[in-house]
Simulated scan of single mutants.
Amino acid sequence: MSKSDDLLPWAPAPGHGDEVLYAVDGPLGRVRLNRPRAINALDRPTIDSLLDRLGAWAADDAIAAVVIDGAGERGLCAGGDVRALRTSIVEGRQDEAVDYWRAEYAVNALVASYPKPYVAWMDGIVMGGGVGVSAHGSLGIVTERTQLAMPETIIGFFPDVAGLWFLSRSPGEIGTHVALTGTPVGGADALALDMADVLVASSSKDAVLAALRQDPTRPASELAQVVGQQHGDCWLEDNRSWIDECYVGDDAAAILERLRAHATPEAQEAAGTIAARSPHSVAVTLEALRRARTMTVEQVLEQDLVLGRAFATHPDFVEGVRAQLVDKDRSPRWMHGSLAEVPREEVLAAFGER
């Protein structure tokens, strides 16, 4: 954490709990996700608080820019509170889960269209819903500690929060690899995916904040000059050749077979990863990714809500969260035994099509 942060008058938004804390730091409106034991996972009170305060600050002339970070040392945000969503679904309250996603996507849309600079300190873990409250802003700052991922296929879900808007536009097929495998990538990879704008040392947070207080509109290129641009290894770019070769096309089963048959060990490892994911999730994710190429952020969020309704009634989401986060046996029993067994009709049905 920044040393200067201890002097700020952090407080919840009026009428909300301390899941999110706020402070005015000169011209900056500071936002701190404040559930460190859960790596700042986004529960419903967090989302409601963000929607309230970000909306108010958008119209407040005293706030020149917004800066969001996460409490604790582990990261900005581990994603949505999917354990709570699973509970709602298991207890027959699917509408509660859909309402959660609707509110979360409203926050993502607000961040994407924010009328002022919106700066995200993307240090440490930035996954799922954490991407939604950071990457859509005007300036995403990653570090050597960043672990960014859209890991939803691991839990029988799909990359939502309009993360597919970025991944569908990433160079070559690197976005497809990230979407289907759910594997975390580093700060330099986040830049390659265009999900962040500048890579700095994690120790430079005080310098970053000082630079933004001086000029809240400071662009990424100038900020990099002021605090020092870092140049980490980019695994995705280093592996572009087999990634671009294997992940082409709209057939998830064919992609998996190309990965399995490829001579590169990394491709075979990716095949094993995808084969362990929910076949339904992987198939729907690929379809959603390809459709997102021609959509706006708002349209991708609309698609996400349609898919969310479908996944709320599909057994793989409940099972995936159970295996990964509830029982933690890491042995999910998916509805389908393989990607080849997922009918095209089932994929289209997730989009409300028959």
Rank of each mutant, 00 (worst) to 15 (best):
S4I: 05
A11K: 13
A13D: 11
G15E: 02
G15I: 01
G17P: 02
G17W: 02
V20H: 08
Y22R: 08
L28K: 00
N34S: 14
I39Y: 06
D43C: 15
I47L: 14
D52Y: 10
D52V: 01
W57L: 07
D61G: 10
A62M: 05
C77Q: 10
C77K: 11
R83L: 13
S88D: 15
V90S: 13
R93V: 02
Q94A: 15
Q94D: 04
D95F: 00
E96P: 01
A97G: 05
R102S: 11
A103K: 15
V107T: 00
N108E: 09
N108H: 12
L110K: 14
A112L: 11
P115C: 04
K116V: 12
Y118D: 08
V119E: 04
I125C: 11
G128T: 04
G129V: 15
G130Y: 03
V131I: 15
I141N: 12
T153Q: 00
I154E: 13
A162T: 05
S168R: 04
G172N: 05
E173D: 10
I174E: 04
H177Y: 15
A179D: 00
T183V: 09
V185N: 01
G187C: 07
D206C: 05
R218Y: 00
P219E: 01
P219C: 00
V226Q: 10
C234P: 01
R240N: 02
S241K: 13
W242T: 03
D244I: 09
Y247Q: 07
Y247T: 11
V248S: 07
V248D: 10
G249H: 05
A252W: 10
A252P: 13
A254V: 12
L256W: 07
L256F: 11
A263Y: 08
I274D: 04
A276T: 03
R277I: 08
V284W: 06
L286F: 04
A288L: 06
A288W: 07
F317K: 02
E319L: 05
G320A: 00
V321T: 07
D327P: 06
K328M: 09
D329W: 01
R330K: 13
R333H: 12
M335G: 06
G337P: 09
E341A: 14
E346G: 10
L348R: 14
A350L: 02
E353T: 08
